[in-house]
């Protein structure tokens, strides 16, 4: 008998603190599986964000650096410039990356920093209790948009992948989802590509992963997957927005 699925070596055995059904755990595992498959666990340095995944440094079984809110790409830049031969990645949520950390992510991409960013977009602030995020959809209720996000009051949700794909320095930008096994498989393939392009020195790479927040969306985990599929996919279309072939 051979094991075809289970905990990858790049993931610590520690139990995640995430709420039941939160897809952060799936995304953690995908990143770890990719690290295993590429054999880069001992060559990797990860940067954890502030937000629900703040404790990512306790889960990934590689060197980790905990950053201030939104600053992970800057911290990763410092690490990568000191160790250009290592694999450096950031793991960030949508409050961290798309709100307080917009300057850092845009300029890391602009400089074509050879790092990989895993951007987890669940359209809400999870850790602080369900406040409106820059990615919260129009009409979506949050604890700081109790009547639903309105265009007049809060404007439009940011489409990070589309925006970053316009930058010359971005080598690989893809948006994926983890709402069913087929999409999880594609998500892993994109994460693997991003790491491979980093290792090949192609430039800045980012994979935006659409994720759920059953707790703060007020849904069961199963309903949350469905909500993601029905509401997030139309506004955040999946696909590769930039590949190194376009960069040349």
């Amino acid at each position: 008998m051979i094991k075809v699925a289970g905990r990858p070596e790049s993931l610590q055995s520690k139990q995640f603190h995430y709420c039941p059904g939160c897809t952060h755990g799936i995304i953690h595992r995908l990143v770890a599986e990719v690290m295993d498959e590429l054999g880069i666990r001992e060559e990797s340095i990860g940067v954890a964000p502030v937000g629900c995944s703040v404790l990512a440094y306790e889960y990934f079984n590689c060197d980790m650096h905990e950053a201030a809110h939104g600053r992970a790409p800057a911290v990763a830049t410092g690490i990568k410039r000191v160790h250009p031969d290592k694999v450096v990645f950031t793991y960030q949520g949508d409050g961290d990356l798309a709100s307080i950390g917009t300057a850092e992510i845009v300029h890391a991409a602009g400089r074509s920093e050879k790092i990989t960013t895993i951007f987890v977009n669940n359209a809400i602030y999870g850790m602080t209790g369900g406040q409106m995020a820059p990615t919260t959809l129009i009409g979506q209720k949050a604890t700081t948009s109790p009547y639903g996000r309105s265009v007049e009051a809060q404007g439009y949700p940011l489409k990070v992948s589309e925006m970053l794909a316009t930058l010359t320095g971005a080598a690989y930008i893809a948006r994926v989802s983890v709402h069913d096994p087929q999409h999880i498989r594609k998500a892993k393939a994109a994460i693997k590509k991003a790491f491979e392009y980093q290792i090949a020195g192609k430039g800045f790479t980012l994979v935006e992963v659409l994720s759920t927040c059953p707790t703060n969306w007020g849904l069961t985990p199963i309903e949350a997957l469905k909500w993601l599929e029905e509401n997030m996919l139309p506004y955040y279309p999946l696909g590769e927005y930039k590949t190194p072939e376009e960069v040349k």
């Binding site: 699925a5 289970g6 905990r7 993931l11 139990q15 995430y18 755990g25 799936i26 096994p181 999880i184």
Partner: peptide, 9 residues
Amino acid sequence: NICPDTVIE
């Protein structure tokens, strides 16, 4: 694959 908590082997 879909288990968020690596419960399943």
